[in-house]
Structures are given as structure tokens and as C-alpha cells.
Design a protein around this nucleic acid. Structure first.
Lengths: 137, 137
DNA sequence: CTGTATCCACAGCGATACTG
DNA sequence: CAGTATCGCTGTGGATACAG
């Protein structure tokens, strides 16, 4: 149990060093994953791709409120981490298909559970917030 | 399947409105949860508290590289969302105990699965990144 | 159709100092 | 011991314009 904590937090040695934040991030692989999940679009795109592969434009239509910039960037990040495969078809006009890799599909399993939890319990969270904010008066 | 997507993304009506970002966040409960997970300290503190309740100072020692400010703030956020209970003991000096609520414990289940995944697969992610960055030359 | 490049606003987080 | 207040940096994400 303690081991899990140690893996999540920064290395203890670096605590002695001033301005250690940048160094630590490189040493915490768990954050690499959580960072994506916490990002605004990553889980959403993974959900879309979990259904079936999609093209750039299709994803754009499925998530109409994402900017082109963030769609490209998020897909790049997912590809970089090995969650998504990008295939270019040299047609005219060119088309690009994105699909979940094996790694991506395996990551999506626990992620989906989390999404289910969020959907099931957001009412409770809302209520807790209201109570807290009420009491803070 | 489509329903899940719709719940995750912002409401479609607001797409028509300029500068709709702020409005949407209030309408997307799933993000409320993911936001915390993606935060730098929330999952770490939940992991610590999943073991057993702890006092402020104990948490500070368990996570030596967290600032006082972020420890307080993260605990407040967790408390606000109903994941954590805060109990003040009117001793001298005063002590405060934090413990996971039922809701917090239920959230921690899927979160723990995600952490396990991250621990198990961060090597693969690292490798994928290296390959990607290599190819980008 | 599928991107890149640039600029900018805001929120998250850290450092530091102060308080009941 | 357990916070609060203030400041400043940095990273994330949005708007817009341009390109192969």
C-alpha cells in the first residue's frame, strides 16, 4: 500500500533540491497517464474511438465543441503515448483514420469504469457541493 | 454508446453561443470527477487516506513534496465533493483528521484500477513515446 | 480534408510570509 | 498544529488565420 504512494509522488531525494518540480514530473509515470485522463478531451476521444475507428472529420462532428487545434493536439498526444494509431490514406482529398491500439483499448477498460462511476454518482457529488457551499456562508 | 459521449461533451445547444466554454463546464458532471483525478495531488491523497484516516501533519509527512497551500486546497476540494470527511478535535494543540467517506471509497475503487493500470503499463507508454519522438526527427 | 502557426486568457500550482 | 493570504510563473486550451 505504501509502495503505491511512493510511486505516485515525486522521489524523496529531490525534496532537498530547490525548484524540484520539473525534475519530478519526469520520474512519475503514473502522472503521465492521469494527466491525459484529466485533460479536457482525451477521454472523450477515447470513448468515441472505443466504438470504432474514425476519421478526423468524423471526430470533429462527433465533438462539435472541440477546436481544430485541440483535436489535432489531443490525437497527437494519444498517438505519442501509444493509445491511438494514425493511418493516412493517400486519396484525394487525403483522409486520415484514427483507431485505438491494443494498449489504448486496455487503458480504456478502467477509464470506462471511472466514467460509469461519474455518470452514476454525479448527483451525489453535486449534492455534496451544494451542502458544502451552503455551510460556508 | 452514443449516450456516453453526449454526457461527456458539452451541450450541443451552447455550440451556437460565442465564448461558451464557461457555461459548458457547469453542465458536464463527468468532468467534475475527472478534473480531480487529473489534478496533481488528489489521487495521491486519496490513496493515502484509503489506507486509513490521517491527520493533516501526517499527510504532510507522507507527501513531503506537497506545499501547505496545495495540501489544504486539495483536501478542501475533496471534502467539498463529498469524498473526504474532516473532523476537528478541540485539543491543544488542535488536531484535524481526514477520512474517506463512503462516496470517496466507492470512487477510489475505479481510481485504484486506473492506478494499477498505470503502474503496470507505464513502461509500454514510455517506449511508445520514445518511438514517436524518435520518428519525429 | 487534415492539419500548422500564432497569439492570448485563464486556471493550477509553487514559494513565501503571516495567523489562531 | 493547521491553516490563510499574496504573488508570480507555467501549462492548458481557445480564436483565428494560413497551408499541403
Amino acid at each position: 500500500m505504501n509502495g503505491k504512494i511512493l510511486q505516485l509522488r515525486a522521489k524523496s531525494e529531490t525534496v532537498l533540491v530547490p525548484n524540484y518540480a520539473k525534475l519530478d514530473f519526469a520520474n512519475c509515470p503514473v502522472r503521465d497517464v492521469l494527466q491525459q485522463i484529466g485533460g479536457k478531451w482525451a477521454t472523450l476521444l477515447m470513448t468515441a474511438l472505443a466504438e470504432k475507428p474514425h476519421r478526423f472529420g468524423a471526430l470533429r462532428r462527433m465533438v462539435p465543441d472541440i477546436s481544430q487545434r485541440m483535436l489535432t493536439q489531443t490525437l497527437r498526444d494519444l498517438q505519442r503515448d501509444g493509445y491511438v494509431d494514425r493511418t493516412v490514406f493517400a486519396t484525394t482529398p487525403p483522409s486520415v483514420e484514427y483507431r485505438l491500439t491494443e494498449l489504448g483499448r486496455s487503458l480504456y477498460q478502467p477509464v470506462a469504469l471511472l466514467l460509469d462511476w461519474a455518470n452514476a454518482n454525479h448527483e451525489a457529488v453535486r449534492a455534496a457541493r451544494s451542502r458544502f457551499d451552503e455551510a460556508a456562508l
